[in-house]
Amino acid sequence: MIHVEHLHKAFQTRSGGLLRPTRRTVEAVRDVSFTVGAGEVVGYLGPNGAGKSTTIKVLTGLLVPTSGRVEVGGLVPWRERRRHVARLGAVFGQRTTLWWDLPVRDSLDLLRDVYRVPPARFRENLAAFTELLDLGPFLGTPARSLSLGQRMRADLAAALLHDPSLLFLDEPTVGLDVVAKERIREFVRHVNRERGVTVLLTTHDLTDVERLARRIMIIDHGSLLYDGGLADLQARFGGARELVVEYETPPTDPAVPGLRLVSAEGPRVTYAFTGAAARPIALVTAHAPVRDVTVREPEIEATVRRIYEGGLLRAGIVRT
């Protein structure tokens, strides 16, 4: 679905006034290469200014790269933009595609004309999305009067009315409450699973990534730091795992050679370890009678923060 080879995008900036202007080249994206297969859901992560938005703008045809090869669905986005945009959908958390003063239903009708969706297919999609996203209560409400969660659900419906094969999601759950976030995630899972829609997700909410994507790409300072699975990311960069042990009775000495003691509260003792869990479990069961054992993985948020802050690119960490 997406093929990117050695993508490079630089911008010229100017400062210093009219008489003695100073020009500077800013490299927003540096030699980025990746592919996304049809039907994948991929999280594209990075801190502000990392190069995520520039990459997305190239993929949608809004920007022309300085160099490199980019194809989306077999098309070069900025050369065949009309055909390209007809096959993609986009939802940006801070912006809307709805007409501000029109009822949601009227906005969707206008988008039907824009994308030339056949009337029967439009009715079918609208009925399905109304049920999945619970649009019914506010289809007659102007966009300006919608809550943030309602507007985001309406924008998702608008982005998918024309059956795109690729969906770009930029911060789709920003500012939403827990219930609204989960409704959005369930809808994205549905269109990916049932309709085969490929999804490229950019977000700062790592719960979105954990719930939706099996693969993530991490970009920082314009360079791709990591491209691989969530499980592999945790295994390589997640730090220590934890073994939470519920002993039959509080142990006289909770320390177990070979494991780092994290905490001990009565019979509940937590140890830190790295690698496979089989040996640590054998050690604690040999130490004292055990009622229950739980392996707790490092939080993805902490893992990604380590990558952002730890200079792993400079240390020679490259994508898998």
Rank of each mutant, 00 (worst) to 15 (best):
4 V>C: 05
5 E>R: 15
5 E>K: 15
13 T>N: 07
14 R>D: 04
18 L>P: 13
20 R>E: 06
20 R>H: 15
23 R>K: 12
23 R>A: 08
26 V>A: 05
27 E>H: 15
28 A>D: 10
30 R>G: 08
30 R>V: 14
32 V>F: 03
33 S>C: 10
35 T>W: 01
39 G>A: 04
40 E>H: 11
42 V>P: 04
43 G>Y: 07
46 G>N: 03
49 G>I: 08
49 G>K: 10
51 G>Y: 06
55 T>Y: 09
57 K>E: 13
57 K>F: 02
60 T>K: 04
61 G>E: 04
62 L>F: 13
62 L>N: 10
64 V>F: 11
65 P>M: 13
77 P>E: 05
77 P>Q: 09
79 R>N: 11
79 R>D: 12
79 R>T: 10
80 E>K: 13
81 R>V: 14
84 H>Y: 03
84 H>Q: 12
89 G>M: 05
91 V>R: 05
92 F>K: 00
94 Q>G: 01
101 D>I: 10
102 L>R: 09
104 V>Y: 03
104 V>W: 06
109 D>P: 03
112 R>C: 12
114 V>G: 02
119 P>M: 04
122 F>M: 00
128 A>Q: 12
129 F>L: 14
130 T>Y: 02
138 F>T: 11
142 P>S: 10
143 A>Y: 06
144 R>W: 09
146 L>H: 11
149 G>M: 02
153 R>W: 07
154 A>Q: 02
158 A>W: 05
159 A>S: 05
160 L>I: 02
161 L>Y: 07
163 D>C: 07
165 S>L: 06
166 L>H: 04
166 L>I: 14
168 F>R: 00
169 L>N: 04
169 L>S: 00
171 E>Y: 03
174 V>P: 03
182 E>C: 01
183 R>K: 15
184 I>L: 10
185 R>N: 11
187 F>E: 08
187 F>N: 10
188 V>S: 02
190 H>G: 00
194 E>S: 14
194 E>Y: 04
197 V>T: 13
199 V>P: 01
199 V>T: 03
199 V>H: 05
203 T>G: 00
208 D>M: 07
209 V>T: 06
210 E>P: 09
213 A>H: 03
219 I>Y: 03
219 I>F: 02
219 I>R: 01
223 S>G: 14
224 L>S: 09
226 Y>M: 02
230 L>D: 10
231 A>H: 14
235 A>C: 05
237 F>D: 04
238 G>I: 10
241 R>W: 13
245 V>W: 09
247 Y>C: 09
251 P>W: 13
254 P>T: 10
255 A>S: 13
259 L>P: 01
261 L>P: 02
262 V>G: 04
263 S>H: 00
266 G>Q: 01
267 P>F: 06
269 V>F: 02
270 T>P: 09
271 Y>R: 11
272 A>F: 10
278 A>R: 15
281 I>H: 07
281 I>A: 15
283 L>M: 13
283 L>K: 04
284 V>G: 05
284 V>W: 01
285 T>E: 13
289 P>C: 12
289 P>A: 12
292 D>V: 01
299 E>N: 11
303 T>E: 03
303 T>A: 13
308 Y>R: 05
309 E>K: 12
311 G>E: 10
313 L>A: 15
318 V>P: 00
